[in-house]
Amino acid sequence: MSSVVELRGVWVDFGGHPVLEDITFSAAAGEFVSVVGPNGAGKTTLLKVILGLIRPRRGEVQVFGVPPWKLGKQRARIGYVPQVEEVDPRFPLRVLDVVLMGRYGALGLGRRPGAADRHAAVEALKLVGIAHLAGKPLGELSGGQRQRVFVARALAVKPELLLLDEPTTGIDPAASESFYELLRRIQKTGVTVIMVTHDVGVISRYVDKVACLNRRLVVHGRPEEVMADAALAEMYGCAALFFHHGRAPHMVVRPHSELREGRR
C-alpha cells in the first residue's frame, strides 16, 4: 500500500512557540485514521499542514507524493470538512448551494457552476443520505444534518483523501454514531479518511489507526496496539483504559483520581 499522506520529522512554530514537534505520521491509501488529542494539541494545525496551508519549519510533508503546497489543481483530490463553528448557520443558503461550493475550487476564478457541478453535488448529497434536503435552507437543519452537508461539500469533488476537523462537535451521541458509520461507508469506496477529534472517548471500532497528538504524536498504530502503549497516559496526564467487546475495541479515558478510586 502506498502512503497518501506522509509526514517526517515535522516541526511547526507559532510566534516562536512549538505547536507541532517532530511529527512522523503516515496514512496509507484507503485507511481510516483518527487523531485524538486535547484542545490546543495542534490537531487543526496538523490538518492545515496536510492541506499545505501551513509550511513546517523543519521536516518533510508529502501528499500524493508531492509537498501539498505544490498540489495546484490536484488540491481537488483532497476533501476538507472544517470545524462547524466557522460558519453562520443562519446564513441564507440552500443545502445544494453549500454543497456546490465544494466544486468552486476546481472551477477557478469567475466561472459559475454548471449542470455537471449540480449533478455532482446531488450525487454527494445522495452518498451522505440527505438528497431530500437539497432545497432546504441551511438554517432549518439539525446539527447532524448540517454536518452531513459539509461532508457532502467535501465529497462533491470526489476526493481521494477526506480530512475532518472535530466533525462530531455539538452532535448528540446517537447522531455521532451514525456519522461514524457514514465515514466508514465513504472509506469503503476507497477514500482515505483522516479525522481529528478531542473526543478521546471516540469509539475506535470504526478506525484502522489511532494517533494521539499533544504537540508530539505519541501513539500511532492499530487500536489494539495503542492499548498496549502507556504513552497515552503520559500525554493526557490521565490513564487510558481499553475494553474489548469482540471485534469492537473501545477506548476510554478517565482522569487519574477517578481511576484510583476504581482501583481500591
Binding site: 492541506l51 488540491r75 476538507y80 472544517p82 453562520d88 461550493m101 468552486y104 476564478l109 457552476p113
Partner: peptide, 20 residues
C-alpha cells in the same frame, strides 16, 4: 466574482483551502 464573494463571506477558511 459572484461565487468568489459568496464563498469568502460564507466560509473564508474553506475558500482558502480551495485555493482562492
Amino acid at each position: 466574482l459572484y461565487k468568489e464573494f459568496l464563498f469568502i463571506v460564507f466560509d473564508p477558511g474553506m475558500a482558502e483551502v480551495a485555493g482562492f
